[in-house]
Design a protein around this nucleic acid. Structure first.
Lengths: 99, 99
DNA sequence: TCATTACTTGCATGTTTGCGCAAACGTGCT
DNA sequence: AGCACGTTTGCGCAAACATGCAAGTAATGA
């Protein structure tokens, strides 16, 4: 590891992709649901709590998945989504430290 | 302090306002500039580095200021903007811990 | 007071984003 | 194969957003 100047470190950690994923109220609602549930949730289950059509929830979950916030596991016909706490927390701490 | 269940803690820390401010590439560019400079920057100085009209930069800075990411100090005719690292880092760590 | 500089704000415009609906896709069951 | 169920995706629409220009405000100096 070569030591980096603070600016370079910050630039590396200041990626907008994650924030783009977290900036929507509905997606925040989804995340709260996932965090509060004791097991991975299906799209339909999530759609029940936030007043949005299932197709919309599916899209939101795709955004979160691409950003590495959640990951999906197929289970028969349904897909269960789960928070990737480790990954998100690591990124946030990285940025906090860079500041 | 009353102990809180993880969900409640997360709900409190999962505010979209901050992420909304951080999710724009131009604003990220502005923040990099502010972090790299050794003293608070004027709107004109910031506008030079990111290829956006001064009025746009001014707007972006207003968004960042409302979100508590930067704060402004008037200095004669110019306004110097500075990162509020403490505040942002505290919020990010709070969320990371809640996860 | 008038001119100049630095920043902010109203307005118009093009782009992005979230949304519901309907069709398509994938999976399991008979 | 045919069907039902759960999820994803194409499409169109309306609201939100970023941007440049021009007008407005604030501060400094002649």
């Amino acid at each position: 590891m070569t030591p980096q100047r603070p600016t370079a470190t910050l630039a590396k950690h200041l990626q907008t992709d994650l924030f783009r994923a977290l900036c929507d109220p509905t997606r925040a609602e989804v995340l709260r649901r996932l965090a509060g549930a004791r097991r991975p949730q299906t799209v339909t289950e999530i759609a029940h709590c936030c007043g949005v059509h299932i197709s919309g929830v599916s899209r939101h979950l795709a955004v979160l998945r691409r950003a590495g916030v959640v990951h999906a596991v197929r289970e028969g016909r349904q897909v269960r989504y789960q928070l990737d706490c480790e990954n998100v927390a690591r990124t946030l701490r990285g940025l906090a430290d860079a500041l």
